[in-house]
Nucleic acid binder design. Structure first.
Lengths: 259, 259
DNA sequence: GCATCATATTGATCAACATCAATGATAGGT
DNA sequence: ACCTATCATTGATGTTGATCAATATGATGC
């Protein structure tokens, strides 16, 4: 799966006519990284880009591996090149909730780096992932040298705040069923494809427990809710990490109607 | 009440030796505004400060009055000089929750101004308030002319995101009782004073319904919970907007212990 | 292919909170 | 000071989702 995604990434840069760059810089160069356009480094000039590229470290990580732990001091910033990274917050009783998911093209840990505060969440790899690390001294140089970086982080922070505000409102006002549907729709938008025979097919990239942590409910409640969704004909679950939505409109209606 | 707060504000600037400035600029000048140090305008040089001061509009507003409505386009930024402004989000059923409170020295509506998106919440005056309005064209000039302003807004946004993340986690993990205690502690920190006879006395600056909207619970649940807190000896409620905490440690323990 | 361990589901029960309906208290206007 | 409208409290009841315990399913190693 990871291999496929990486190949896809490589092919894309070739297709875009950057084959010489790709050769010159190697397949893992930030210069040719197809995800960079989605990050705060998108407007970097060559000079700064090369700086990042020289000093970055990149690793392939497996599900369960940790980028940083709640309480750690920030050492730098992480870029998700491929895969999926969850930010998890543990409470006093050892329960955890997934605060957000970080998809490819996202920088993780910028908030604590910029505010110089300890990590509030742990960052945990949820799927085979390709992660780049950029040390805080480099980020500091970028912020001082490239004004666009500060602006991008401001935009990013504004967006994160908006998303959190929505999540905050959602968790107080709507039911587990509607929230689960919402999470499934997010997965559908990212991983979905239309099979004309059965409907909109997509992967659920996390285990049931993490799906529960994402919705903010107990795993048992998620089981019961998925069963109900199947009974209602809204979503089929042919496997524990597969889902099919026969009719998107039914789902939209249900999210709106349900509490 | 408002009068008292405004007098207090005036006196403070006099006490701080700015009596000439205050005379020169009038009691409502941004130049001498004691709240400015808390806002994103704190590092402004005289030139920009005068610009703000010339173009700002200020008004005294009463509880229930609206600064802006959910869905409106942003026209500028609001500074809370005195009083209290709540940001309220309405859901489809007409229920509302208070997403955050804005105390004196806070700018309101910066997020939508900077991201050029419609207001996601309504801003509603909760106590007699003194509010200044700064048009977006002025804010634009400040951001372009004074680099500190952009930095301040970045810091502000990072902090708001952190607060929202905490609220998000809190609402999913802890009980109404603990959340209510937390909200009461916030009021205590801001409005509290120690009376040696009875304990820590403070005002609750909002009506019961809004206290409920702040905790994210039904007003009836707040009633029952306050009753329980009295029965447990944690908090006394001698009036609907007054509270007394006999022993802070008991409250801290209860917040920690309760779910 | 089987044993083992983790993960997922199901059932039964319980606690927390919402809702509805009724009553009691409070504040603002005349 | 009274009237009225709004706000707060209380009680009765219903719903949602958590928890505990048991079973089932699936994955991994040998």
């Amino acid at each position: 799966m990871l291999i496929n995604m990486m190949l896809a990434g490589c092919l894309r840069s070739v297709v875009h006519g950057e084959i010489f760059m790709a050769d010159e810089h190697g397949p893992n160069s930030c210069v040719t990284c197809p995800r960079r356009q989605l990050t705060e480094w998108r407007n970097l000039e060559t000079e700064h880009l090369e700086l990042v590229n020289r000093h970055k470290h990149d690793r392939i990580l497996k599900p369960g591996e940790i980028l940083f732990n709640q309480g750690d001091e920030s050492e730098g910033i992480y870029c998700v090149k491929d895969g999926l990274v969850g930010e998890r917050r543990f409470d006093a009783e050892g329960h955890s909730i997934l605060v957000r998911l970080n998809h490819p093209g996202t920088t993780v840990g910028y908030q604590e780096l910029l505010s110089k505060t300890p990590f509030r969440n742990s960052a945990e790899v949820l799927q085979d992932s390709h992660i780049c690390f950029i040390n805080k001294s480099i980020v500091q140089q970028l912020i001082e040298g490239a004004p666009s970086v500060g602006q991008r982080f401001l935009r990013r922070s504004l967006k994160d705040a908006q998303d959190l505000e929505d999540s905050f409102v959602e968790v107080q006002t709507i039911s587990v069923k509607a929230r689960l549907l919402h999470v499934l729709m997010i997965f559908y938008e990212r991983y979905g494809r239309l099979d004309p025979d059965v409907g909109h097919v997509f992967d659920i990239p996390v285990a049931r427990q993490d799906l529960a942590a994402l919705v903010g409910a107990a795993p048992e409640t998620i089981s019961r809710t998925t069963r109900q969704l199947q009974a209602d004909g809204l979503v089929q679950f042919p496997g524990v990490r597969k889902a099919i939505i026969p009719d998107l409109d039914l789902v939209f209606d249900a999210i709106g109607a349900d509490t």
